[in-house]
Design a binder for these strands. Sequence first.
RNA 1: CGGGGUAUAGCGCAGUCCGGUUAGCGCACCUGCUUUGGGAGCAGGGGGUCGUAAGUUCGAAUCUUACUACCCCGACCA
Length: 490
Amino acid sequence: MAKDFTSRKENYSQWYNELVIRADLAENSAVRGCMVIKPYGYAIWEKMQANLDKMFKDTGHQNAYFPLFIPKSFFNREAAHVEGFAKECAVVTHYRLKNSEDGKDIVVDEDAKLEEELIVRPTSETIIWDTYKDWIQSYRDLPLLINQWANVVRWEMRTRLFLRTAEFLWQEGHTAHATREEAIEETEKILNIYADFAEKWMAIPVLRGLKSPNERFAGAVETYCIEALMQDGKALQAGTSHFLGQNFAKAFDVKFLSKENKLEYVWATSWGVSTRLIGALIMAHSDDNGLVLPPKLAPIQVVIVPIYRKTEQLEEITKKVLPVKEALEKRGISVKYDDRDTHKPGWKFSEYEFKGVPVRLAIGPRDLENGTIEVARRDTLEKEILNMTDIDLKVANLLDSIQAKLYQKALAFRDEKTFKVDHWEDFKKQLEEGGFVLAHWDGTEDTEQKIKEETKATIRTIPIDGKQEDGKCVYSGKPSKQRVVFARAY
RNA sequence: CGGGGUAUAGCGCAGUCCGGUUAGCGCACCUGCUUUGGGAGCAGGGGGUCGUAAGUUCGAAUCUUACUACCCCGACCA
């Protein structure tokens, strides 16, 4: 087996980076902090996109598109919002270039200075609410349920492929409602869509809960999140859904006339997931042989590799393979028949293992004689020789069981790495080792901040369905009603 | 922005301390033959302004200075 790249256990970050490169998902671009998503990586994103998009549309949302540039003044309108994003904005100040005096270079034309700078969107609340102002007059215009697929820019100091890049792809939903209750219901509905997607499609178990005030989205009243645990014991925020109250409605003056003919501010939500989900997918399941993809999101679900010496043998194999490919495709399974003669079978085996293809079928002269085929599953690397009869059914069942097993494995891992801790020394020690640490917290920002300074851990989430129990804050000893989840995070 | 490091072929590196033929190795690439059930072997071949600029020198990848870019550790990270 080819293991000429860093092991998970030696250096998790390096393993992750090499894996992304070797699986041909993405690479660093020449532009600082930005990433090139390669066709195979993008194919995974497209699958995620298609499924999420359907889930949004099934719940009454529509897609639209808003500008990349936001006038600087829009940012000033919501105080918390501008404060939250000000430090990481790319700013457009000019609109023209010219030849330098010596003609050897292109320089910014100082005469082409914009009267008002434009911010490259780090998120679109401001431009969207400025637009909604004109779209909403009456309760009949509500609810307004809109999503956009877009790219955003956040000028991060330090970046990591998929997990944190200066530019990233995402979807952001922005909705307007007549009542507070309806907006909260929407926020929770979306959170559940995200959680379902993570668990049923990505095979990653997630915690659903609220963010503490410290970690709340800039401008939100309440931030809901789904939180996943990676194989190195660090947490990853996989999606957020915000109840914005009337903050943006007030900042952008978005009012409607109610049935009772009263002028009221609308209630808002916003929510998003990004290409970071691909990072989560990689870190949750992969091993030292490469990527492991859940069948439901794998661009190639089954690969067929022929083993042959002469071209006549290949022809015979192809005759056997094509009906199998067709039968699998009829079941909605994506199949690649790799009959390239430029690479040997062993090379192909390794290649598809790196790429995380869930099931590999290999067929050679021996199988032709016996009417068999070799079936290998990526998650366990087990191989078995099966009779060709009903092979499409067998493979379809195998894909289902791989999907289920990946989730179970990730869930078992998370349970094993979740700890209840009551004493400060144990708390520090456990965070050092990783995992979700359930502890009591006195509810103050001050305590949260001090814990962060001393342990590098943050409150990942306050579980929605968390058990109520009396306890004492692990840091301050003050009373607490519920355990919250601490972890070091990406 | 602080602290450390690196820059030599598409990728990964050696050579730099102590200047001296035509700058070398692995992978990848091209050609041919043999191979093909877990990353094939042999033979031949192509590819380099040694990050940029200036300086020292008979002579610079190697020494000096400045600059630039990238990486790691912090800070930052809704």
